[in-house]
């Protein structure tokens, strides 16, 4: 008979255990099993980026990862972005630049933008647009998102 698998992983710096059916995506596990609902399901086929999390140093669409693949991995989610000291500069920049309207895509954009700035602290507008092309936003037309990322980059370098 089908049985669930035991998985030990690390999420936002904490060791986490869970049971998952192999067919369950990492996104389902995060949301339904672990109640980490910051990652969103927008398309479930890797085209909208709303479910973006960082896994072993790379951002991925968590809808295209099986939960069982998290075994031994290091995962970062939006829930781990702010610290007890306060919001991450990107989070603050998104608020100050009104870079969100409905907010459903925002966790994915923030995760992707943070990975961008980790990799390239001073990106051009073109580099930001290229990097964020896997994240769809339907509200903003991207203008204020791109400006928020540039604003955060500038403030983080200062």
């Amino acid at each position: 008979m089908p049985t669930k698998s035991y998985v030990q992983t690390n999420i936002n710096g904490e060791s986490v255990e869970f049971l998952a059916e192999p067919r369950q995506s990492l996104l389902e596990v995060l949301r339904d099993t672990l109640q980490l609902t910051g990652a969103k399901e927008g398309c479930n086929d890797g085209n909208c980026g709303a479910c973006t999390v960082k896994m072993d140093g790379r951002i991925v669409c968590s809808c295209l990862v099986f939960g069982v693949e998290a075994e031994g991995a290091d995962i970062e989610t939006i829930e781990g972005m702010a610290s007890p000291e306060g919001l991450h500069p990107l989070q603050t920049a998104f608020l100050e630049n009104a870079a969100l309207q409905c907010g459903i895509c925002t966790p994915g954009f923030l995760m992707a933008s943070k990975a961008l700035l980790d990799h390239n602290p001073n990106p051009t507008e073109g580099q930001i647009r290229w990097w964020l092309a896997n994240n769809l936003c339907r509200c903003t037309g991207y203008d204020k998102i791109v400006r928020a990322v540039m604003d955060a980059a500038q403030k983080m370098q200062a």
Partner: peptide, 9 residues
């Protein structure tokens, strides 16, 4: 092939 997230995998 895909975007940044897809290219990670």
């Amino acid at each position: 092939i895909g975007g940044t997230q897809i290219q990670g995998r």
